[in-house]
Amino acid sequence: MKSLQTLAFYLLVLVIVVVSVFPFYYAILTSFKTGTSLFEVDYWPTSFSLSNYYSVFQQGEFLRNILNSVFVATMTVALALLMAVTASYALARVRFRGRGLLLMTILAVSMFPQIAVLSGLFEMIRFIGIYNTPWALILSYTIFTLPFTVWVLTTFMRDLPIEIEEAAIVDGATPWQIITKVFLPLMWPALVTTGLLAFIGAWNEFLFALTFTSSNETRTVPVAISLLSGATQYETPWGIIMAASVLVTVPIIILVLIFQRKIVAGLTAGGVKG
């Protein structure tokens, strides 16, 4: 019985892994193919050609685009977390009138379809004078990262027990000290999780990135991928697109592998025992 359960469990794990990874595996497979063999179905590697990877770096400035993406996504996350940690402390732990309304308003911000704010945001960005700079993207991305981070962090912070804060208040700690000394160490799992999700959101965003930049030097990876092209207007360069996708997905996977130690560490650090 016990071993049967274990078997079922590992079977489930296997299914989850296969379903998640297979399309990516298929992308890797495709990235090694060229020409007509792209149109043939294979389950195992049949050819190994790096020419698609070579093409990715030949067309445009892919390395530069990756760096742009890293910069934009990191700054977006840093700004969002900075604003969200303080704001969610205020929203979760301090009683004041209109708190529910404010939370609703923040939520409302993420209700507007991207396409509808596009032209207004475009005007705003040109008005501030940051068109075609990474800052245009960092600013516009807060529209979807900020409400989300604030909400998730508020929920987590609200669930932390009263006692941990009480002791600090008795000791005469300021609100800022309470956030940094008391809450921050406890919130690692939530911070890492939301930070990661916001990072990926910013990393993957396409519509704003296409609209608010106009040169290869400022563009981010998704736009760069959409710019990869075949020999003609009608040709889709599957091999090259897949190669580029593999290249941009690898950093994310590394990031997850690094940070999941943090997730675990945040848990074992204790204190969340309530």
Binding site: F24, F206, P222, S226, S245, V248, T249, I253, V256, Q260
Partner: peptide, 15 residues
């Protein structure tokens, strides 16, 4: 496994 399940999310939607 945790890293593996994040792969779908990490690939840009366009791609």
């Amino acid at each position: 496994v945790r890293a593996a399940i994040l792969i779908p999310w990490a690939i840009p939607t366009i791609v």
